[in-house]
Write a protein that binds this DNA or RNA. Structure first.
Length: 590
DNA sequence: GTAGAGTGTCATTGG
DNA sequence: AGCCAATGACACTCT
């Protein structure tokens, strides 16, 4: 109760203070000095803003996640479609010189690799189309490029035989290469650069293959060391009967890691707003985070306009006023004579015209200028400071002694009953201009605001001014400078936002490009692996023992030595190496 | 009636 | 110490 009465008394005091304040006892006194509710409102606003932002973030995060789970999105059209696996058919047939192959053996060796190599060519076409679309759209991170890596139709022969099996989890320890070997009808060990280090010298079964014998190998790869190029050390001797598909594959590991990266990339790509819905979500996130509206920067012109900080803000209507105002303010020294008049012309404060015109230092041209600028908004663009003139801040029923004395209360004034022509003209003057006139300040507001300190002081010394006049002049100067500063500040804020948006777009572009390159590398890697496999089978199929019979793939395997030679070793030996290599990466992880 | 944008103003801070 | 620019916060008007 006591507190309430105190509040009542306080509000009465506020009213009284308000009246006194309107009489402009102290022309420089701010109204908020007496505003008791000032801080309370501030706290309420802060609380509301915090809650709103939190909610929005939660929502946008869930939405993007849901989209990422279910749909791919065409970066060009924004159309959503179910995930599909565009088959990546490498040129297996190129790598397999079929004219020299013993038909039976070739079928036996290559059948797992060649299964369905013809049927997916339409899928290959889809892949090529997709890639071309992506190349044309530098900005677009089509999520399908990510999906390619880990979503494939069950019947895809490539994914079944070689890599990226559709049912293979991303982090499962089954590599592309293992999958391909596992699909073979025979168990092969692969070329190994470590074959030289094996105790094969003493093995009578070890048959070194002279490089000259493998003409097809050299014709395909030249003198390239395939071991170094395609098969890191741990690759050797991977597949055997016991190990099965669980053998590690260095390339597979690489791809697994790549695919893991793709998960995050895809999520990011989806969040990046490459379709309109998600774009709007992203924008809303920006809006809520910044606490500022980005509507202006979302206009089509904003992107190009944001190229430079000086021009960025002119691209949007909202920022243009502030930017041009501030840009003019930067050259205020040369144009201040206009600024002072303009800067306060938006305020509408009725004042006795006769008194105003009779005031010392009043300039008719000045008034004319204001009138013109107010009535013809199109001319405001020529004078940046005038762009906001159309804004009628009628709230400033100002703390001017003469104003409050001569005028009815703000409520009645607001109704427009007294809005006559003279009032209309007066509206073009700012509150401080009215005050200055009322106080008979003998020079213009623009001089007050824009003169350098020394000249300003010199000007003041020329006149015999009362304390109230001096106080008002100082306030006018302070407010005028602060007004310009605020305009500059707002312009800078907008520019910063626009620049940040541009940076985000650049980063998105870079990310899209890197993602495309990554997909390309993975694709070529897969192709090379398939070629190597084809060559392996071709070479192995041509080998004959001393009796002219082919070697059994279950008993022998080829290993590729570091010097370019290819060795035929017993499969048991290859299996040992495979196990040895299998342990190394595990130990490394520990 | 309400929300958001735009603007002017004040208080504060740091150069 | 005084001046000034920058900026957050608020009030107010307009749409």
């Amino acid at each position: 109760m006591g507190w309430e009465s105190h509040l009542t008394a306080a509000s009465a005091d506020i009213d009284l203070i308000d009246i006194l304040w309107r009489q402009d006892i102290d022309l420089g006194a701010g109204r908020e000095i007496f505003d008791y509710s000032h801080r309370q409102k501030e706290q309420d606003v802060d609380k509301d803003v915090g809650d709103g932002a939190e909610q929005e973030d939660t929502w946008s995060g869930e939405g993007a996640e849901a989209l990422a789970r279910n749909l791919l999105v065409d970066g060009e059209t924004g159309e959503s479609f179910p995930a599909q696996f565009p088959a990546d058919i490498s040129s297996i047939t190129e790598a397999v010189p079929s004219e020299s192959e013993p038909p039976g053996l070739q079928n036996n060796l290559l059948s797992p690799l060649l299964t369905g190599t013809e049927s997916p060519f339409d899928l290959e076409q889809q892949w090529q189309d997709l890639m071309s679309i992506m190349e044309m759209q530098a900005m677009e991170v089509n999520t399908s490029t990510s999906e390619i890596l880990y979503s494939a139709p069950p019947g895809d022969p490539l994914s079944t035989n070689y890599s990226l099996a559709p049912n293979t989890p991303i982090n499962q320890n089954v590599s592309l290469h293992q999958a391909s070997l596992g699909g073979c009808s025979q168990d092969f060990s692969l070329f190994s650069p470590e074959a030289e280090s094996l105790p094969v010298a003493g093995s009578s079964t070890l048959l070194p293959l002279v490089p000259s014998n493998s003409t097809s190998l050299n014709s395909t790869f030249g003198s390239t060391n395939l071991a170094g190029l395609f098969f890191p050390p741990q690759l050797n001797g991977t597949a055997n009967d016991t190990a099965g598909p669980e053998l590690p594959d260095p390339l597979g590991g690489l791809l697994d890691e790549a695919m893991l990266d793709e998960i995050s990339l895809m999520d990011l790509a989806i969040e990046e707003g490459f379709n309109p819905v998600q774009a709007s979500q992203l924008e809303e996130e920006f809006d809520s985070d910044s606490g500022l509206s980005l509507d202006s920067s979302h206009s089509p012109s904003s992107l190009s306009g944001s190229e430079g900080s000086s021009s960025s803000s002119s691209s949007s209507s909202s920022s243009s006023s502030s930017s041009s105002s501030s840009s003019a303010s930067s050259s205020a020294s040369s144009s201040f004579s206009e600024e002072g008049a303009v800067g306060y012309s938006s305020d509408s404060e009725t004042l006795d015209l006769e008194e105003a015109e009779g005031a010392v230092g009043y300039q008719p041209e000045y008034s004319k200028f204001c009138r013109m600028s107010y009535q013809d908004p199109s001319q405001l663009s020529c004078l940046p400071y005038l762009e906001h003139v159309g804004h009628n801040h009628t709230y400033n029923m100002a703390p001017s002694a003469l104003d409050s004395a001569d005028l009815p209360p703000p409520g009645t004034l607001k109704k427009g009953s007294k809005e006559k022509q003279a009032d209309f003209l007066d509206k073009q003057m700012s509150r401080d201009e009215h005050r200055a006139r009322a106080m008979k300040i003998p020079f213009t507001n623009d001089k007050i605001i824009n003169l350098p300190v020394e000249e300003f002081n010199e000007l003041l010394s020329k006149y015999q001014l009362s304390e109230a006049q001096l106080s008002l002049i100082r306030d006018i100067r302070r407010r005028g400078k602060n007004k310009m500063a605020a305009q500059n500040c707002r312009k800078r804020k907008l520019d910063t936002i626009l620049n940040l948006e541009r940076d985000v777009e650049d980063l998105q572009r870079d990310k899209a490009r890197l993602l495309r390159e990554k997909v390309e590398f993975l694709r070529s890697l897969r192709q090379m692996k398939q070629k190597v496999q084809s060559l392996y089978q071709e070479v192995f199929g041509r080998l004959r023992d001393e009796n002219g019979r082919p070697y059994s793939p279950s008993q022998y395997a080829l290993q590729y030595a570091g010097d370019g030679s290819v060795l035929l070793i017993p499969r048991t030996l290859a299996d040992q190496q495979a196990r040895r290599q299998e342990r190394k990466p595990k130990d490394r992880r520990k």
